[in-house]
Design a protein around this nucleic acid. Structure first.
Lengths: 223, 223, 223, 223
DNA sequence: TATGAATGAGTCTTCATTCAT
DNA sequence: CATGAATGAAGACTCATTCAT
């Protein structure tokens, strides 16, 4: 996450010379929050500005127009999620994968972990990515870690051929399912939490449910 | 203040009286299609009217206002999905369930089958139900087949206690997962279809994938 | 339903920045004039704006909505009339009245004098206060100088008991009659001025007529 | 008042052959009531129709358009008031007047009496006649009993010259004042009835107040 | 940098009016 | 006579955008 410049004094009444303050960053933060809450289309420029403590005209000053604000939100906030989930480390090397089971499990855990830093992400994803006309879908397609995604899919396919994974799954779809189910459950927690008989689930329990459900799924029916 | 008095005394309006009756039905169809495509909030009354071949005023003639149009769409179109999925028959008796495995499998199949009659449903569901601020979410909560949902959840719990189903799953969550994953995959077909290495999947293949993934999931780890 | 999302992303609006500031004041002036001429309900926001030399959107900029424009007109223009008529000075002390005859006479004169500064007042009063569904009636009831009104009425009652005023009058009604007759005649000047045989009356003559008519009225029949 | 044809059976559901019923008269009655209550401009064609138990299109069938409905209301309902007030009889012969005092007193009594048959009249008068832009004002000017009005005014003038009436009054204005004050008080009964210290006044008390106030007024200061 | 004032293009909604049936 | 369906013209209100200061 782009670190914000440290705030250098609060604005009181009408701003005079104060300057600084990283208004731009505040606008992005305000925007991403509102986008997740209400959807991008339903969020007005003035709302974003108000949440950032400035006037609507500033949005145009910093971002030229509504569209470019969305661009910036995407590039400077949303992509952070991609990086959190897909960055390579010792255990997670999707482009040179060894263990598909491990990779898929890690994906689930990383997605859940990432939403702790970016709590607005699941809502935003449901609204603006899942959604056919979602305003971030196309943007995401262009910045998608295709390599990594395919790496995992190929790992799955290899395991299938080796008889170590459920052969009825479509490899790519398996990754998508892992991703999608996790985010969907995170995003809809509140709703099914309201259904009678529901249990309030923290991230740990949720993770166990998902991992268990899917891991058994992808490891099953190997014949 | 009772608002203002509109200018009176003009001379206009000449009905064209097109053929093809049931304008009301056409409006509902147009609305549900546009809602799924663009989202409810993004759909203007005039668009709906245009798609039905009439003027915007007709929407108000038949539905009083935007909101009641949405109500009608929900009651007269969307609920059809609930009925297709949850109606009881010989095999599917969620309120007196015998076989959880069978019920869950049937749910997946029924969801997929229902979307053949109601192709707009997955998109609409993602936009307006999954979505926290979706305009159908609250409406759905009021018309939800809670009995049936709980019936299935209880059946799952029973099987878990009997050691015949994955004990790490939250029963209610299992049903939600089945439902959600299926609809999500249906709604996002086009996107992951565009990813390199993707295979175009018809409903049959998709069904096999989901059933296989989840069935192994819910039947796994019984200890 | 949060209404709909307006189409975004157009490029328009170029302020002309006319000279002559205080657009807000101009809007109030325009409004009060039009209100008196046409009635509040019949006055459109756009008319008010046009008369003030701006676009309709400015009315919403300064007053949020139609209703609050009316509120402001009332508070910042109409109440001026109340103050002109009822302010206390050496001669006019309705809360500690000495001479009812003097007070009533002064009321007539003050009403007539006030309408020289606020020429729209009589028409507005007839339309929006007298009128049962007048949009200022309720507002006025809340800001009415009840104390003063009752002071005068009590003064009348005292004189009646002392045998110095017409005993057949209802004290409160006497004050209302004074007020009402004066304003009604001011408001209808033009009409009866058009009747054959009418004389064009200036304020002085009108005042003499009213004072004479009513003063003899309230001082008569003392038995 | 135009006598209405006797109702011949009620309309139930959709009208078939029933006919009759004097729908026209009902529309006029509905209209005059709504006009008095809300004002003419604020009354929609549909409201009138609904109150008469028919659809809006019938208004156009019977009256061609909104304007001509108002014409008819005026001619067939409002003018009844003129006739009630100004018809000549043994005592009231304004065109050959003998006793101005008697005539003026009778005018007050007749106005009050007329409003018992036409209770909507005072409100309508305040809204649509008093009012500069009232929609009945111009119509009334054309059908005004000018002869009679002038007769009374001349009678007043004669008495003034003879030293039997208040010389400071404008004769025409005296008649207008009598008329106007009476109607104004009738129309505003409810408001000042709400002021603290007010007494609920029936027609008799109201009449005594007005007659006393004005009679002393016009008979005073004869020098 | 930042504001406030201003604009013009929508969007919903209401309503008089018309006309086939 | 009467209805219901349909239209087109407003009118209130919102909002992205612009610009002088």
């Amino acid at each position: 996450m782009k670190t914000r410049k440290p705030a250098r004094g609060r604005r009181r009444g009408r701003p005079v010379v104060d300057a600084g303050d990283d208004v731009r960053g505040k606008l992005l933060d305000a925007a991403v929050g509102l986008y997740a809450e209400q959807g991008i289309a339903a969020t007005t420029v003035a709302q974003v500005a108000r949440h950032a403590g400035v006037t609507g005209a500033m949005v145009h000053y910093y971002f030229k127009n509504r569209e470019q604000l969305t661009d910036a939100v995407f590039l400077e906030r949303v992509l952070r999620f991609r990086d959190l989930v897909w960055h390579e480390d010792e255990d997670f090397q999707p482009t040179q994968p060894k263990d598909a089971d491990l990779l898929l499990g890690l994906l689930i855990r990383r997605v859940i972990a990432a939403t702790e830093e970016l709590p607005w992400l699941p809502n935003l994803w449901v609204k603006e990515v899942l959604n056919e006309s979602g305003l971030l879908r196309e943007r995401l397609m262009k910045h998608f870690p295709v390599q990594q995604l395919q790496g995992v899919a190929q790992a799955v396919a290899r395991e299938q051929r080796a008889g170590r994974m459920n052969r009825e799954l479509q490899p790519l779809l398996a990754v998508v399912s892992v991703f999608g189910l996790t985010l969907m459950l995170l995003a809809t927690r509140k709703v099914w939490g309201r259904l009678p008989g529901a249990v309030e689930l923290d991230n740990t329990k949720l993770e166990r449910h998902i991992v268990s459900l899917l891991q058994n799924g992808w490891n099953g029916r190997k014949s």
